Amino acid sequence: MKAVRKVRAMTGGPMETASPYLFVVYHKDEYPAGNSKMEHPSKVGNGMDFDQRAKYRMYHGEKVPGFPAHPHRGFETITATIEGVIDHADSLKNGGRYGMGDLQWMTAGSGIQHSEMFPLLHDDKPNKTRFFQIWLNLPSASKMVPPAFEMHWAHEVRSWQSEDGKSSATVWCGDFKGVEAFGKPPRDSYAANPASKVGIFHISIAKGGTLELDPAVGDRNLYMVEGSKSVVGGKRVERGIHAAYIETEASVPVQIECPNSDCEFLVLQGRPIAEPVVQHGPFVMNTQQEIVETVMDYRRTQFGGWPYDRPDVVFPREKGRFAMLNGVETAPPDNEILD
């Protein structure tokens, strides 16, 4: 049995996924120093800036990069950060500033509005941002659960390292070679069911290093997002403008080699949700009729409305990393972000 079924260069934007995943994007932006309002010092975005060939993108932001208030229903977002910070606000009056290795889970469930902005905190040096956003589907029985979100701070996130020090893995969900992810996903997440076997890992391999992925249950996809070349399951992989997509046979081990450069991979695996998927923008349901009902619900209720005076909410520059959930604020012990 071949370890690799398909290899394909990804030339920009959302990357190909398989159930139970819906969507994954690798965000890597090198923003300039911001102005006094944490905005871009000169450029005003056009609200649709997704050019993956550019040094940075404004996305839907016009002055602050990011994604101003928008709705979701029927799935959840997993935002796994590496560099930079994100300001989150939502229609339940939850919010927070997180990044630099933090992990946020947000179950949209029956419906929520939220904003995800990337404030340019530094006014004297560039602002770099690097993170993954992953959309994980919900089965039909959980499509209408109450919205929820959880924060796993960077110091809580667990990792694995090889004996030779040439390869490592950040374990955002699931089990990687005996290292289990910290805490639990939200209660109604598909990943909270042990039978789903959801695994989300960020793998780094130094030049000349190798790593063997153990057999998995369900489907497994790899995305080479950094590095020029690698060999995966005996097949040569070259990264495109954005990334390389690698569909593997989960039931056999997969050998990864990085002979010419340091490499980084995202690994997504899990049992498929064997149900129909009907998507309309930010809404993901099982039937077209449910999509029609969702659009009507949103027009009628705005999923709770937007309790802020601006759609692109950002917090004060001096505010450290924090999470506000149901009126209670928490923060990691190392919540300073400016140096």
Rank of each mutant, 00 (worst) to 15 (best):
S42D: 00
P272E: 01
M296C: 10
R73F: 04
H152Q: 11
T301E: 00
P65N: 15
K128M: 14
T79S: 07
K28V: 11
Q255C: 12
S140F: 13
K184R: 11
F283E: 00
M38H: 01
Y59V: 03
F67K: 04
G234Y: 01
D219H: 03
E275L: 02
L138M: 01
G174T: 03
R5L: 12
T81H: 03
I200A: 00
V232Y: 06
H114G: 05
V284S: 07
D164I: 05
H72S: 03
F182D: 13
C258A: 15
V157C: 05
K207A: 10
P186F: 10
R321I: 09
F283N: 01
E249V: 12
V44Q: 10
G240L: 04
E116L: 14
R187Y: 12
G208V: 06
Y223V: 04
I291N: 06
S162T: 05
L211N: 02
M324P: 11
T330H: 07
G327Y: 01
D87M: 08
L266W: 08
V292C: 07
V4F: 02
F131L: 12
L211D: 02
Y245E: 14
P282Y: 11
Q161F: 05
A274L: 14
A331T: 03
D219R: 00
G183E: 04
G13Y: 10
I112R: 08
V171W: 01
G208A: 05
A89W: 13
I203E: 02
A3R: 10
G233H: 13
K93M: 14
R299W: 12
N35T: 08
T294Q: 14
G208F: 08
P333V: 05
I203Q: 02
P146C: 03
Q279V: 13
G209M: 09
E16K: 15
M117F: 12
E293P: 06
G281D: 13
E249R: 14
Y298Q: 06
G12A: 02
Q113W: 09
P333C: 03
M285W: 12
N35P: 04
A250H: 05
D312C: 10
H152N: 12
E226H: 13
T107Y: 01
A244S: 14
S228W: 10
L266P: 07
E180S: 15
D214V: 12
A80S: 13
V25I: 10
R130T: 12
E83K: 15
L136W: 00
E62L: 13
E226K: 13
G101R: 12
K125F: 05
I291C: 09
P71R: 01
L268C: 05
E293R: 12
H72L: 00
A33S: 07
D188L: 13
Q255I: 09
S196F: 00
I82W: 09
L92H: 10
V328F: 02
K229Q: 15
S168G: 07
S196L: 01
Y31F: 09
F182V: 15
V278D: 07
G234A: 00
Y308L: 06
G240R: 07
H122A: 14
V44W: 09
P68K: 08
K229I: 10
P332W: 02
N137S: 03
P253G: 10
A80P: 11
V64H: 00
G199C: 05
R53M: 08
